[in-house]
Design a protein around this nucleic acid. Structure first.
Lengths: 203, 203
DNA sequence: AACGGTATAGGGGTTTTCCCCTATTTGGGT
DNA sequence: ACCCAAATAGGGGAAAACCCCTATACCGTT
């Protein structure tokens, strides 16, 4: 079911990659190294999880560019930025864009480990969240347009009678739709249904 | 009802305070200046809103310290950090701690204005949120412990019969509590009630 | 001692939901 | 031509919720 988290190291300096690899392996973390952002993107898939350690200064695509690209995806592992020549502005932008941390080389080993731990924790929780949401969305997709319409009105607290009038059909039709909705959404009670829908609304 | 947003400038350099004041007033924003964090704290009240422009290096209490103090409060205006001698680490910490922006002196006037605008927007939305939450919490406080207990079980989707058995009382007692809950929470439908409770849970 | 709020319990009635059926029409796919 | 999913509609009954009323007991305040 669950694979181990992987630390994806993306840095065009082989020395750095190897050093980080050793450091991570010393605490039992798996590592996958890439010499360029493109190399990483080529094998990127949504199953991967863990975190990214990303160098800013790289040929062709910078770490910050990769960060922006990944931000456009539905979901990606948390990012730790490392850089040899960082400035305040760059660091601010990176963190504002959601990076977990921004470290200057040469970094303290423990600081990087701490950031990676933090990133992996964040990955776990955000993946848990994403899974729940995806699950609910999958069920929602099973609804017909009409059922979806009824669902929305149910969630809004309308009684069947009112929904029937609203949609210009009989009450028994609404009852039928409503039963279908509960079945397809795998909701035992109205409370379950509302919880699912509000999670989508509020997150 | 609504007062204008105020830019609270906290910097021990009078020149800087005056420069920022002029800049802010040039676009019609109100300003309140303070020469120390303590001065600001002394007059701090939760009605204030707008944003803070905070210098890092100050005698006795630094901007970052003040940021930490305010973070302990239930709610405070968004913070823009400015500094003459910032480093990457400091910037990262400040943004991670929730600062809207971190600017180095001498800053570009437009950059500061942009940050302040962003901060004020954030203030508006976070105050709106906080108001909604406070409103719900106020109503919740009106419930007796027993009513609160019933509410929780209702939200969990339990039927009155089950709640009655759970609490070892009769069904009609539950009905009475339930009616009281709806009245005190000002909820017309179960849907309203669930929405309020889930907003508290999920935010 | 009287009062108000809380928790309890019940009667009696209406409305709504929920669940089990059947049944027709329409439109798409085999 | 046949079948299936979707949308429609209805009957009938059980369960639950909702509403209005009364009533008792306890507890703390005035």
């Amino acid at each position: 079911m669950h694979s181990d988290p992987v630390v994806f190291v993306i840095d065009d300096d082989q020395q750095v990659r190897e050093a980080i690899q050793l450091l991570m392996e010393s605490i039992g973390l798996k590592v996958a190294s890439f010499a360029s952002a493109q190399e990483y993107l080529d094998q990127f898939n949504t199953q991967d999880h863990g975190c990214l350690i990303l160098d800013v200064r790289m040929a062709s695509m910078s770490g910050l560019e990769l960060q922006a690209r990944l931000a456009a995806e539905e979901s990606h592992p948390p990012i730790v930025i490392i850089t040899g020549h960082g400035d305040v502005q760059m660091a601010v932008k990176a963190i504002q864009a959601g990076a977990v941390d921004f470290l200057e080389k040469p970094f303290n080993d423990q600081a990087l480990l701490d950031s990676v731990h933090h990133a992996i924790e964040k990955d776990l929780s955000q993946r848990g969240e994403a899974l729940k949401l995806a699950d609910i969305r999958t069920r929602l997709k099973r609804l017909t347009p009409r059922e979806r319409e009824v669902l929305d009105l149910v969630i809004a607290g309308q009684r069947n009678k009112v929904i029937a009038i609203d949609l210009g059909v009989s009450q028994s039709t609404i009852e039928a739709h409503r039963a279908k909705v509960m079945e397809k959404m795998e909701a035992a009670t109205l409370s379950d249904l509302m919880r699912m829908m509000l999670i989508l609304e509020l997150r």
